[in-house]
């Protein structure tokens, strides 16, 4: 807000009048700004509002009423109907599956990406920059390119507890990979490790600490914010992923929330209230996480352009 200098020649009275008018115009502009931005924000949220209000209506209301009319009553039964709609399972099962897969993938990425990041940021070895460039290059490779060979790989990995006798039909292909590094996480944490002054590590080294001890006792504790950022993003990606669970999961009780929801949508075509209830329930954990940890999301995207 740059304020233009007042003309020096203006008499005192007029000076006051003008600045009072200016103050009013600033207030008006502020008000317009708030109104405009809030209206835009609400427009952006229309799909969410539409989802919520449909999820509380009856089916006949949905087809009869005008847009954004309030439901006649709060029909919470849409939620219980949706929750128990599929035979033999509830959405709770899908939630458990998603939670397990997302948690394991997050743990795997946190451990192995921070290890790799430490090597790239702190250790010195031959071929470091070439290897780092190679890992960054995998960022631009569409992962669908490796879909078929990975599927074949998992088909050859034995697993006695599955019907197939291998990893297909289990959730293993959905999270074990995370224990083998990742370009995004490595890059993100490396950038942070580079900002840690080496004096700390030097002091520890003088006291006889080896690189592993320096990593675990100095670098990892200092990197908590960036680790939280990676954790949040990996959890979100795993939670929202559709293609991989679709390929690897075979029976209903093993489905994740996304595959369960897509399956449910195929089974209940036209039952919009139940479907909106399902969509809302599946989105809720991530929305809550976002509201609690918005700055970590923003930071993660700003640093590395991570996105969903």
């Amino acid at each position: 807000m740059t304020v233009a200098p007042m003309p020096a020649s203006s008499p005192e009275a007029s000076h006051y009048r003008t600045s009072a008018r200016r103050r009013t115009s600033i207030v008006v502009r502020r008000l317009a700004l708030y109104t405009g931005l809030t209206a835009g924000g609400l427009a952006m949220m229309i799909p969410f509002l539409w989802m919520v209000q449909t999820s509380l209506k009856t089916r006949s209301e949905v087809f009869a009423s005008a847009p954004f009319s309030f439901p006649t009553g709060l029909h919470w039964e849409n939620y219980t109907n949706m929750w128990n709609a599929l035979p033999g399972v509830t959405f709770g099962t899908f939630f458990q599956n998603s939670l397990f897969i997302a948690t394991m993938a997050t743990i795997g990425q946190l451990i192995t990406c921070s290890m790799a990041a430490y090597a790239f940021a702190v250790l010195k070895f031959r071929g470091k920059s070439i290897l780092f460039a190679l890992i960054l290059a995998t960022l631009i490779i569409p992962f669908q390119v490796v879909l078929v060979p990975n599927f074949i790989l998992y088909r050859y990995l034995p697993w006695p507890y599955s019907d197939s006798g291998n990893w297909i039909g289990t959730n293993l292909p959905l999270w074990v990979w995370a224990f083998f590094g990742g370009a995004f996480g490595t890059f993100l944490i490396r950038q942070f490790f580079l900002t840690i002054p080496s004096d700390l590590a030097d002091a520890a080294r003088v006291d006889g600490a080896n690189p592993w001890q320096i990593f675990v006792r100095i670098y990892v504790p200092l990197a908590t914010p960036v680790l939280a950022t990676l954790a949040i993003f990996q959890f979100m990606w795993s939670w929202n992923d559709l293609l991989d669970p679709l390929i690897y999961l075979r029976d209903l009780p093993s489905y994740t929330t996304t595959v369960g929801l897509a399956f449910f949508q195929g089974q209940y075509i036209g039952n919009w209230p139940a479907m909106m209830a399902g969509a809302l329930v599946s989105l809720l954990p991530m929305i809550i996480l976002f509201l609690l940890a918005q700055r970590y999301f923003v930071r993660g995207i700003t640093i590395s352009g991570l996105k969903g």
């Binding site: 929202n240 559709l242 929330t257 991530m286």
Partner: peptide, 8 residues
Amino acid sequence: PLVTSSTA
């Protein structure tokens, strides 16, 4: 919308 799944 940032955190939403494309499926839902």
